[in-house]
């Protein structure tokens, strides 16, 4: 069977900056794949290409064997590709619950006319959707914060809520951009547990970017390493840990020699 996601010589440049050059990788069903690399390596750009938020990459990104090139971000969401953002893009004004409702709303058959008139069908469907959102909220242990505006939550809970919003899409592919950024040791441990549960309960394939090596090594089956837009290594956590090129990319030549 074809991999769930297949990047084939993807390149992207901004002005003179080559953010990605001929990056290829495969992501198989059920896998948790790590993507690591120093700041500015192009990890977020890769996510942006996969989700279609920056148009105009070269190369091919195939999902379930289908080229994503001509699909808009919301079409890709419809194919059940969900993501979180490095710099948290929650709907700050909306309550935590409404944040989770949004992806569900986006697919709901309710339209403007029904909303205007508040037809019984609309209200019924809305209740059903709310129940679903609330169960995700409880799953994330955020039940107490249902009515809190997302912007008022502490960062740790915001990160969790963002994962919840991605899960509300019932994704087949989940892209997590530095889910551990800004979390303390305890929150990171909870995150690792959460991701393990998510894989089990939601049967979702994941691509995770993070700088927390402990986290990545612990949850990922395989790891790819990006540096200056190029894929410099690929392997199991153990292989990556012992790879001198990777250490050099992170710490510089001097550190390796020392």
């Amino acid at each position: 069977m074809a991999p769930l996601l297949e990047a084939d010589k993807v390149s992207m440049s901004f002005g003179g900056v080559k953010a990605l050059s001929d990056v290829s990788f495969d992501l198989h069903r059920g896998e948790i794949l790590g993507l690591i690399g120093p700041n500015g390596a192009g990890k977020t750009t890769m996510f942006n290409c996969i989700t279609g938020v920056v148009p105009g990459y070269k190369g091919h990104i195939r999902y379930d064997g289908e080229d994503l090139r001509n699909l808009k971000p919301h079409h890709r969401a419809r194919l059940k590709i969900a993501r979180t953002f490095q710099n948290l893009e929650l709907f700050d004004e909306l309550s935590a619950l409404d944040n989770l409702l949004l992806p569900l709303d986006a697919f709901a058959p309710r339209g403007v006319i029904g909303d205007l008139l508040r037809l019984p069908m609309t209200v019924f469907d809305e209740r059903k959707t709310q129940d679903k959102a609330r169960s995700i909220l409880h799953f994330l242990d955020l039940g107490d914060h249902a009515d809190t505006p997302a912007g008022d939550l502490p960062v740790g809970l915001q990160r969790r809520l963002e994962i919840g919003r991605a899960l509300a899409l019932e994704p087949r592919l989940l892209l997590l951009d530095e889910p551990g950024a800004g979390l303390d040791a305890r929150e990171t441990a909870e995150l690792a547990r959460l991701l393990a549960t998510v894989r089990e309960r939601f049967k979702v394939t994941m691509l995770v970017v993070d700088h927390d090596m402990a986290l990545i090594m612990r949850i990922c089956n395989r790891i790819y390493v990006l540096d200056y837009g190029q894929m410099i290594a690929e392997g199991t956590p153990a292989e990556i840990r012992d790879d001198p090129t990777v250490a050099r990319a992170y710490l510089g030549d001097a550190a390796v020699a020392a």
Binding site: E93, L94, L102, A106, R165
Partner: peptide
């Protein structure tokens, strides 16, 4: 209702709305 949430979400973050499936 949905319309209100979607429109507010767009105001807060277009990019997140789009990747959540909103046109």
């Amino acid at each position: 209702s949905k319309t209100g949430r979607v429109l507010r979400a767009i105001r807060n973050s277009e990019i997140a709305a789009a990747t959540s499936g909103v046109n």
